[in-house]
Design a protein around this nucleic acid. Structure first.
Length: 418
RNA sequence: GUGGGCGUAGCUCAAUUGGUCAGAGCGUCAGACUGUGGCUCUGAAGGUUUGCGGGAUCGUUCCCCGUCGCCCACCCCA
């Protein structure tokens, strides 16, 4: 028996329908904000991710699916931003229009230990706006994320916000931390002792009470921010207030990827348990330049698709079947039904029939299980009169109808597929 | 990478302190006056005999070890 590899999932038709609904809605909202879809490959040079995410990040160190091809190292993308920035630069998109807004959706891969809301192949829906350092862009992105959640009727989430400051400020903050914590490293948890060496900023958002206590005593707030970054952050907050977006400033919110600067945010949902981030993102004003592109600011975020599904209504949506089901009795009728089936479909009416040789009763049961709106019955009686029997499965009523009138009758009552 | 729990029919679960043929519900399929579904009733199929491999035992689904997988948490992150 073949089994799927750990941390992957089959999305069966029932669930795929929920995926489609979410995708449709997010696509619509992205379009409203003038974001355009971009589809980079899911495999890239491994070094692209080292360069952009940071060599010492957990993702790059332990969680990448790396593929070796002779001399070359490739990797399945662990996130979307790097590929999109690469595509932006490689295709000279900045030369045509320096400011561009993209959205993307698709699978991402990380070699983590699977648990609730965490798979090795998981899916992101996200966007990137490249070519601007305007604080209003931060406002747009965060409020866009907010609108998507609203559109999906997801409630009770919390938007957490912080500013890391520019590269200089980050360096300052790191120095402050290293200085302040040096004497106290032994009081930190083992993980933080490790973080202190490799990625000092991450000590800030340790969940352990003991570490948090030490960090709060430092009373950092935004002292490390330069005046420009302070102003930028103030504008972001003011903009969100103006639009009525609820958020909370968490001074210790630090993201795990090196490329973030200034605004970072995370949207959490209590129903998710340990993996409580529904979405996250932030500004990355240096990344485009670092990857060889123009010196422009940019910002992006991504939703975790599986997590959206977890917090949405638990029950799988059943599709109300907009379908006509044809049941034929006898050889002659079978031929007729074949023609009719083609004709219905030709006219944009979704139609299906029985291919298992079921009895009338069995076929009706099948139609019922499918939840179809109408059943068409064709037998000898109908053939003689040149009609078909049309049965409305919700009311149970049935009537004979001339074949010539059938299409227009059904067209009025069913949604056409264009 | 670390810790804990779990692994029995398609699904959800049962099986007295290890001891007659491993059960139920749901689902599936077939019937209930010969061309009619949803409700009800009846019946049947379905487990290579309990993830896989070993061990202890007269004997184990139930004990021990290993392995694989799932779940939860740590960690990390969306």
């Amino acid at each position: 028996m073949w089994k799927k590899i750990p941390g992957t999932k089959d999305i069966l038709p029932e669930e795929a329908y929920s995926w489609q609904k979410i995708e449709e809605l997010t696509r619509r909202i992205f379009s409203l904000y003038n974001y355009q879809e971009i589809r980079p490959p899911i495999i890239e040079e491994e070094s692209l991710f080292n360069r952009s995410l940071g060599k010492n990040t957990e993702i790059v160190r332990k969680q990448m699916f790396v593929i070796r091809n002779k001399e070359d190292l490739y990797a399945l993308r662990p996130e979307g931003t790097a590929s999109i920035v690469r595509a932006y630069i490689e295709n000279n998109l900045d030369k045509q229009m320096s400011f561009r807004k993209f959205y993307y959706l698709g699978p991402m891969f990380r070699l983590e230990r699977p648990q609730k809301g965490r798979l090795r192949q998981f899916h992101h829906i996200g966007c990137e706006a490249i070519g601007s350092s305007d604080a209003d862009l931060d406002v747009e992105l965060i409020s866009l994320a907010d609108k998507i959640l609203e559109g999906l009727s997801i409630a009770d989430y919390q938007i957490q916000l912080n500013s890391l400051g520019c590269a200089k400020d980050k360096a300052t903050l790191t120095k402050i931390l290293q200085k302040e914590l040096k004497a106290k490293t032994k009081k930190l948890c083992p993980d933080c002792q490790n973080r202190f060496k490799t990625n000092t900023l991450r000590v800030l958002d340790c969940k352990k009470e003991t570490c948090q206590e030490i960090i709060r005593k430092l009373n950092l707030q935004d002292t490390h921010l330069c005046s420009e970054c302070k102003l930028h952050f103030a504008k972001v907050k003011a903009g969100l207030d103006l639009l009525g977006v609820n958020y909370e400033v968490i001074p210790y919110l630090v993201r795990g990827l090196d490329y973030y600067t200034r605004t970072v945010f995370e949207i959490k949902h209590p129903a998710l348990g340990a993996q409580d981030a529904l979405a996250a993102g932030g500004r990355y004003d240096n990344l485009v330049r670092e990857l060889g592109g123009p010196d422009v600011g940019a910002m992006g975020f991504a939703f975790g698709m599986e997590r959206l599904l977890l917090v949405r209504n638990q029950k799988p949506e059943t599709r109300s079947q907009n379908l006509v089901y044809i049941i034929s009795l006898g050889e002659e009728a079978k031929k007729e039904s074949l023609k009719l089936l083609a004709e219905l479909r030709q006219n944009g009416i979704p139609a299906d029939t029985d291919y298992e040789g079921k009895s009338l009763k069995g076929a009706l049961r099948a139609a019922n299980d499918l939840g179809v709106r109408y059943v068409l019955i064709i037998g000898e009686n109908e053939l003689k009169k040149n009609v078909v029997t049309l049965k409305d499965m919700t009311s149970g009523e049935q009537r004979e109808i001339k074949q010539t009138e059938l299409i227009s009758y059904l067209t009025e009552r069913l949604h056409k597929v264009p």
